[in-house]
Structure formats: structure tokens, C-alpha cells
Amino acid sequence: MTAPGVAAPTGLERQPPRLMLARPILTMRGVARRYGDVQALAGVDVTVYPGEVLGIVGESGSGKSTLLRMMNLEDTPDAGTYHLALAGREPAGPDGRNLFTLDRFQRRMLRAIHIGIVYQNPHLGLRMGHTSSGNVAERLLIAGNRNFAELRQRAREALEASEFPVARMDARPNTLSGGMQQRVQLAKAIALEPAVLLLDEPTTGLDVSVQALVLDTLKRLQRDRAITMVLVSHDLGVIRTMADRVMVMRCGEVVEEGLADQIFQDPQHEYTQQLVHAKL
């Protein structure tokens, strides 16, 4: 059952969890971060397997968005390790090291090539005064592509994959609806086929019908390309629609983790029970 106010993706039934390979693609251990007197993260462990969707839920202030920023190497923890299994595609520098030890340039290159992100606020992920295709091409440029015709073709393909109307590929994001802006962000994020796609409240603020369309697109991309995703949301309906596994966070800690069906049908922690029952 989908939570009230969230339409299930049209024509796409939720599939059983995909088989997890023995080797995780993303591993974080003991990640801790304090901001002044606030313990935003308190020794969090995360494991994500190739091709799965990990959902992270919790109320505002639970630490889920801070954890996503750590995954995107936008911040450095006080303690902890972070590794990505990149199947031989590692840029110069990481060679199996803790990614939190990378310098600013190495982080920028790793983010550009191996980590895609879609922010809740499109202004954080897009240049609003540039064309939509130009936003996607910018990511390709960072990876070293300099051929204009190829850049434009690959940008077009990424926009098509995100179900953006390519007839408007030269429109600026500041002239588009919120749903279309999210599709441009998504196209930019997947243009280089990243090892992991991070989604930070991607449907918040969108109309229910637009939410359903965006979730449709994400499900199709995951199904067709087996993209590994980490989805942060306070909306349990979105998480239930998308996720294979769920982590429940509270006050910077993971209080419960398990397969999505188990979390929603038989939550064990009192806090998880409160979250689930509040949405039923």
C-alpha cells in the first residue's frame, strides 16, 4: 500500500528485491560528524550493493541528508571510512584508499565521473541560465570530452533517458517546471553512468501527479540500466515505491535496517513503528 498523497508509478509494479552480489559497491564504516553541540552522525555504517536501491528515512534532523553529503564527498567526517568499488574505473589517486582522505581536486574528479546526485533544490545542481543540454554537457566536459557534436549527442541521449522532451533541450532550466528541472538534473547525473546515483528528496515540492511521473522514470532507469541508487526521503510512500532495503535514522544513528517489505510490514524498533503507523 502506498502512503496517502503519493501515487504509485503508473504501470510499474514494485519488483522483489534484486539479488545482492557478494561485493558491495559502496561501503561506509563508523562515519561520525559533529557540528558544534549537535551530533549529526554517530558512527554510521552503510553498505550498498550493485543494482539495488537503498532508501534512507527519518524525520528532519535525523542525519540522513548529512550522510548523503558525505557520500557525495561534499563534507568530511570527524571519523569514518568510505570506499567505492569502481570495477577498474578508478581515477588517479584513490587506489582503494579511504575516499575521505582525497584532496579537493581528487574529490571533484571522482564526483564528476563516478557519483551522480539529484538535489531536492534544482538550483543546487543546475546552472539556471545555461541551456538544459549545456548543463548535461558540462558534466561530460569535466570528464574530458571536447567534441561539440559528440557532447550534444550524448547530452541528448541522457535527456531522452530521463524522459525530458528533447525538443526543449536548449531551453534554460529557469523557464521549466519543477518536474522538468528534476529531469535535467537526472540527465546530468546519469550522463557518465556513475557507480552510484544519490537522490536527495527528489520529489519533494512536486505535485502528486508529477511525483508519480518522476518515480516512473527512476524505476525505468533502475530496471533498464541497473543503476545503484541511494534515495533519501522523509516520505515513506516514495521509499516504499522505490527501495529494496531501508535504513531508518534518528538523531544521527541507524535504529533499524532491513528489506523494505520487512520494515513496512513488521517494523521492530519503536521509532520505526511510529513512522510507519503514522503513514498508514
Rank of each mutant, 00 (worst) to 15 (best):
Q273R: 14
I56D: 13
L41C: 04
F148P: 13
N174H: 14
R14I: 02
D170K: 12
Q106V: 03
H123E: 14
Q182E: 07
E138A: 07
R18I: 09
I117V: 13
Q39H: 08
A85E: 15
L280C: 05
V232G: 04
A87F: 09
D216I: 08
D216G: 13
I117C: 01
R146T: 11
E253A: 11
P9I: 00
G179T: 15
P165D: 15
P122E: 03
L19T: 12
A243V: 05
L84F: 12
T272I: 06
L73I: 09
R89K: 14
T27S: 10
P165E: 11
H83W: 15
A158E: 13
D45M: 05
T47Y: 03
V6S: 11
E253T: 13
Q106Y: 08
R146P: 04
Q15P: 00
A171S: 14
I190V: 15
L102W: 06
P122G: 01
L231A: 06
E193G: 13
H114A: 13
T204V: 01
G205Q: 08
H269F: 01
M229G: 02
E13V: 05
T217I: 14
L192P: 11
L221A: 10
L140W: 03
M20D: 01
L19D: 10
V48Y: 03
H83G: 12
L67S: 04
L26F: 14
E150M: 04
G5E: 02
A85F: 04
A8V: 00
T81Y: 05
R107W: 03
G237D: 04
L26E: 04
T76M: 00
V238Y: 02
Q181G: 11
A187D: 12
G144M: 09
Q120V: 00
V46N: 05
T101H: 10
P173K: 01
D266K: 01
S133V: 13
E257A: 10
T76L: 10
G96M: 11
D95M: 09
V196K: 02
V254A: 08
I227M: 15
A260V: 06
